[in-house]
Design a protein around this nucleic acid. Structure first.
Length: 486
RNA sequence: CGGGGUGUAGCGUAGCCCGGUUAGCGCGUCUGCUUUGGGAGCAGAAGGUCGCAGGUUCGAAUCCUGCCACCCCGACCA
């Protein structure tokens, strides 16, 4: 039942935590996972918050099919290049009993005329549909999001961080001008950054991907990059400016106010269940999860210290009603099989932000014991002041988690000017490295080969600064962010 | 696909080299009683085709052959 300590094996700690906190489990199919109720509840709070942010900025939800004609994928050259190697393909539509009666086999007579792929992302099927929907500038902008599952046949998988099938949202928008599409791309990036910071308590760096790291089919890929406790970077969300690439590939044109035909401008943007992995790896400790209050399925858990006192139940019901009245999610653990000590440890493992203990001693004093998960402190609080205190505490916990993660992140952004330093920082200090780069894919590739570090992004707010590339010595006009990444 | 490792009860494991009682232990599960302010105690019980298939042998968890699965490391990626 023990969770492997981070200092011993970070990777194993992560797996232990995901499984022992009941977030997810392996399934019968390699690379696919079962998201368990507790994990799915967290995902639902993420979905709820993001969905509201999308709706508040004028987007609507729709749903496009899981299966895509194979030919669609090949219409955009870079796109097919990027995804062809990891597509699952449907070739038949029927099974039958085998001749020797030992099992069930694919019926060779049921071969599909055109094979279908399971979507690795939906640009193609969506743009094929948008062609029908868009005729005039009056049809624009088209601002659609979908919540869906996608499949990418990865060679190596890890729970939440990279699974064969995963859940995500993908926004796909169409605009009449380049400027409007670019604004949309940046707006969605800002929404992701805001979500990460305000809901996940996760500080992120906003940036642009290099040509090498760009989404297949995009003109520009923007991203938010987060830092995990082991010093590795994790891409937490992406927003792409697609230019007219898909409009041209699928012939999506509109008539402008002047009566001329033009190709539309596009964006797409997404975050996935990978965020669950980020949440775990950014905040948790060797005792278990530490959840930010806004995403915690139970924000407060009440553990009675059982004595045969009828007043206990009465007081618990009263404070529960008050907490719930102000919208706080409260769980009461009345289970009499486990002792309080066991429950304390259990809810720490589950990352519940606040635990309230109440027993005979408290009852006599008119107080309860309030324990914070984020910093493991305990205090005695008068029942009369409890609701306001808990509300404030939830805010404080979020702030503390964010501040702590930000301090760690900032301590792990290192400016380096020489190759020796570059390698040393990556190996010993870990984290992000801010260094000059000559702007060529060749140098980027060399650095990747030699250090396993990639350019995570060119930070959006990076100031212009003349220097020389840390690897090639050629001139550079600004620093970029390197790291080893998930 | 290359390199390394592991398969014994729900989980974690001992036994394997050197074949020979009824395959042992911890956690968990079930029943009962006593407990309950940091992972409870006692008593009892259930739970196993020893990854699969062959082979050697009087006898295989143990030896041999083949296969399968999973994990870790590398090549691909959000």
């Amino acid at each position: 039942m023990q969770i492997t300590p981070r200092s011993e094996d970070y990777s194993q700690w992560y797996i232990d935590l995901v499984r022992k906190a009941g977030l997810a489990d392996y399934s019968a199919v390699k690379g696919c996972m079962v998201i368990k109720p507790y994990g799915f509840a967290i995902w639902e709070y993420m979905q709820g918050a993001l969905d509201k942010m999308f709706k508040d900025t004028g987007h609507v939800n729709a749903y496009f099919p899981l299966l895509i004609p194979k030919s669609f994928l090949s219409k955009e050259a870079a796109h097919v290049e990027g995804f062809a190697k990891e597509c699952a393909v449907v070739t038949h539509y029927r099974l039958k009993n085998s001749e020797d009666g030992t099992g069930i086999v694919v019926d060779p007579d049921a071969k599909l005329e055109e094979e279908l792929i399971i979507r690795p992302t939906s640009e193609t099927i969506i743009w094929n549909t948008y062609r029908e929907w868009i005729q005039s500038y009056r049809d624009l902008p088209l601002l659609i999001n979908q919540w869906a599952n996608v499949v990418r046949w990865e060679m190596r998988t890890r729970l939440f961080l990279r699974t064969t099938e995963f859940l995500w949202q993908e926004g796909h928008t169409a605009h009449s001008t380049r400027a409007e599409a670019e604004t949309e791309t940046k707006q969605m990036l800002d929404i992701y950054a805001k979500f990460a910071e305000e809901w996940m308590a996760l500080p992120v760096v906003r940036g642009v991907k290099t040509e090498t790291e760009r989404f297949a089919g995009a003109v520009d890929t923007y991203c938010i990059e987060a830092l995990m406790q082991d010093g590795k970077a994790l891409q937490a969300g992406t927003s792409h400016f697609l230019g007219q690439n898909f409009a041209k590939a699928f012939d999506v044109q509109f008539t402008n106010k002047e009566g001329q035909r033009e190709f539309v401008w596009a964006t797409s943007w997404g975050v996935s269940t990978r965020l669950m992995g980020a949440l775990v790896m950014a905040h948790s400790d060797d005792e278990g999860l530490i959840l930010p209050p806004k995403l915690a399925p139970h924000q407060v858990v009440i553990v009675p210290i059982p004595k045969p006192l009828p007043d206990l139940e009465e007081t618990i019901n009263k404070i529960t009603a008050e907490l719930r009245a102000v919208g706080i999610r409260v769980k009461i653990d009345n289970d009499d099989q486990n002792r309080p000590g066991f429950k304390f440890a259990e809810y720490e493992k589950l990352g519940v932000p606040i635990r309230i203990g109440i027993g005979a001693r408290d009852l006599a004093n008119g107080t309860v014991e309030v324990a914070r998960r984020d910093n493991k402190t305990k205090e005695s609080v008068a029942v009369d002041n409890l609701t306001g205190h808990v509300q404030q505490l939830l805010t404080d916990i979020h702030q503390n988690m964010y501040t702590r993660a930000l301090a760690f992140r900032d301590e792990h952004i290192t400016r380096v000017d020489t190759w020796d330093e570059f390698v040393k920082v990556l190996d010993e200090k870990t984290g992000f490295v801010l260094a000059h780069w000559d702007g060529t894919p060749e140098t980027e590739e060399t650095i990747k080969q030699e250090t396993k570090a990639t350019i995570r992004c060119i930070p959006i707010d990076a100031p212009a600064e003349d220097g020389v590339c840390v690897k090639s010595g050629k001139p550079s006009s600004r620093r970029v962010l390197f790291a080893r990444a998930y």
